[in-house]
Amino acid sequence: MKIRFTLLIFISLLFASFFCLQAPVSGAQVVKPVKELKRDLFSVISLPDPIEGYNRVIFEFNDFLMVWFFDPLMTGYSFIVPKSGRKHIDMSIVNLEYFIHLVACLMQGEFKGALIETERFFINLTLGVGGIFDVAKSWFGLQPHTEDFGQAFAKWGIGPGFYFVLPIAGPSTFRDAIGMIFFVACHPITWIPVPGLGTFVFVNRMSLRVEQYMSIRDPALDKYESMKDMWYLNRKIEIENLDRSDHPYFTDDKGRF
């Protein structure tokens, strides 16, 4: 009888607790403060900067040039050439860089990329009127593989070295600066003997990027650090090819997202 009574009480409470679990009021979320961070995330994704003093001087020089020389120059240039005109000029230059993309793809063993770049070059050269229109992408869905020598060196396992700000050219690493020497040497514009052509190509490209530069620069207190972090993250994304929306990580997501 006693056991039965205990059982009765137990079952009653079980029922009651089950029903009460359905009540909508939840307890307050208790958040304990994290006093000391166990890991310095900033240093994980930051570049070594042993020549910070030099880099900051060059950065200030570049920034001064950007704000007081290139920005007004590009503003004037942008008034003469409309945005789509500037875009198409840049597209044709990118098409001329085919050889660099091809070699950089082959250096990384990206044979599919090399093939796609070759197809893109010929399609854009012919149907795209000398590369002014990127019909390879818009008509045939061929995504660009704009690889460079710095990316190829990175794939070979060569580390970035350290942060290195180049006069006028801007943020780089020691490895990418070496890559840039090869880039300039292999660039078709270097070998076309038209005075000022290189400057024109540079100004045209920068005119499309000045807005982006200012959008990072203006809200930052330490413009150097912001630019360095953003540039390096972007560069790492380029090296891992995560800047392509057709990257297998994004397309073959297997329900990850």
Binding site: L8, S12, A16, F19, Q22, A23
Partner: peptide, 24 residues
């Protein structure tokens, strides 16, 4: 006894649940 058990459970649940329902 089973019926008693059920009724008691129902009664207890009702006592616990009423304020929660009102609150809800």
């Amino acid at each position: 006894s089973l019926f008693q058990c059920f009724m008691l459970a129902l009664l207890t649940a009702f006592i616990f649940l009423t304020p929660s329902l009102a609150c809800f």
